[in-house]
C-alpha cells in the first residue's frame, strides 16, 4: 500500500519553482523528472546534454549552488532549493575565463560533451585554482569525450588556471 502510494506520488504533476541562471521558472512536472529533461524540454536550456542517463558520462553536468552536478541523476524536486547554473548562464556572452581558455585552445570537435566538460572544469577550478596535472586528471576523468579532446581540455584548464593566478597576484 505504502509502496503503491510512493510509486503513484512520483507520477503526479506538481508545480516546482526553479532558479535557473538567476531566473525563476514555475513549471508543472512529475516530482521524479530528472532536472536534465526539465531544463532541456520544458525550459529550453538545450546546452545541457543527454549522454547516458545514468551519471556515467558527464555530458549533462550543471551547477547546483556552484557544485558540478549530474542533471540526469538529479530530480527536479531535489534541485528546487538550489541556484542552478547551466552553460547558458555561465556568462552572458561566452566570456567566462574557462570558456575563453576553451576558445583559445579551440577545444571542441563535435562539441557535444563540451558544456559538461566546461561546467565540471569551472566548479573544479573554483575549488582548486592552482591544480597539478594529477588534480586535473582526477577532476575530469568522469567526463567522457569520444572525439578525444582530452589533450586540448588539459591545455585549456592550465591556461584558465594560469590566468586566474596572474589575476590574483
Amino acid at each position: 500500500m505504502v509502496d503503491n502510494f510512493c510509486k503513484f506520488s512520483s507520477q503526479i504533476m506538481k508545480i516546482f519553482t526553479l532558479n535557473v541562471n538567476g531566473k525563476q521558472h514555475s513549471i508543472s512536472v512529475e516530482a521524479d523528472a530528472p532536472l536534465l529533461w526539465v531544463l532541456r524540454d520544458e525550459l529550453g536550456y538545450t546546452g545541457t546534454k543527454f549522454g547516458c542517463g545514468r551519471g556515467l558520462c558527464g555530458a549533462c553536468t550543471v551547477h547546483l549552488d556552484g557544485e558540478a552536478t549530474r542533471s540526469c541523476m538529479t530530480t527536479v524536486e531535489f534541485a528546487e532549493d538550489s541556484e542552478i547554473t547551466t552553460i547558458e548562464g555561465l556568462s552572458e556572452d561566452g566570456t567566462h575565463p574557462v570558456q575563453q581558455a576553451w576558445f583559445e585552445e579551440d577545444v571542441p570537435q563535435c562539441g557535444y560533451c563540451q558544456s559538461g566538460q566546461i561546467m565540471t572544469a569551472v566548479s573544479f577550478l573554483n575549488r582548486n585554482p592552482n591544480p597539478t596535472e594529477a588534480d586535473i586528471d582526477s577532476a575530469m576523468k568522469m567526463n567522457i569525450c569520444r572525439c578525444g579532446t582530452y589533450p586540448s581540455i588539459r591545455k585549456a584548464i592550465n591556461r584558465a588556471a594560469d590566468k586566474q593566478l596572474s589575476a590574483d597576484e
Partner: peptide
C-alpha cells in the same frame, strides 16, 4: 564552430 560549442548555442 568553436564559439557556439562553448556557450550552449
Amino acid at each position: 564552430d568553436t564559439q557556439p560549442k562553448l556557450n550552449g548555442k
